[in-house]
């Protein structure tokens, strides 16, 4: 009783593709994030080095992580939306994509 989804999600033929892309992009981001933690703990003095626009590595890396999250999110959305549209069009035409 009452356990139905709040909004019914239709069949999503692109879900496997999106999952793979998502994991790869997540791993790439996680590596950059891990680099930030490693530099902070293993070579903290590096964080004080000036990099660009008079900003040191700590600030540049921090802003970079925020910017990278935004850019990679937009790229991920573009890739997923294109695939979803392709798969939906193929489904409508009664074709299989493989």
């Amino acid at each position: 009783m009452l356990h139905e989804p709040a909004a019914q999600a239709g069949n999503d033929p692109a879900s496997e593709f999106k999952k793979k892309v998502g994991i790869r992009m997540f791993i790439a981001y996680a590596v950059v994030y891990a680099g930030f933690i490693i530099i902070n703990t293993a070579a903290p003095k590096l964080m004080g080095r000036q990099i660009v626009f008079g900003l040191n590595l700590a600030v540049t890396y921090g802003f970079g992580l925020i910017l990278l999250a935004i850019i990679s999110g937009l790229i991920y959305n573009a890739i997923c939306t294109r695939k979803e549209d392709e798969m939906e069009a193929a489904e409508k035409n009664g074709e299989t994509n493989e």
Binding site: D12, S15, K18, G22, I23, M25, F26, Y29, A30, Y33, F36, G62, L65, I66, A69, S72, G73, Y76
Partner: peptide, 19 residues
């Protein structure tokens, strides 16, 4: 560092968890 960590967590939410 909290700002950086809080925001980075959203990457996980987007790429892995949201859909």
């Amino acid at each position: 560092l909290y700002s950086i960590g809080y925001l980075a967590g959203w990457v996980m939410a987007l790429f892995v968890v949201a859909e």
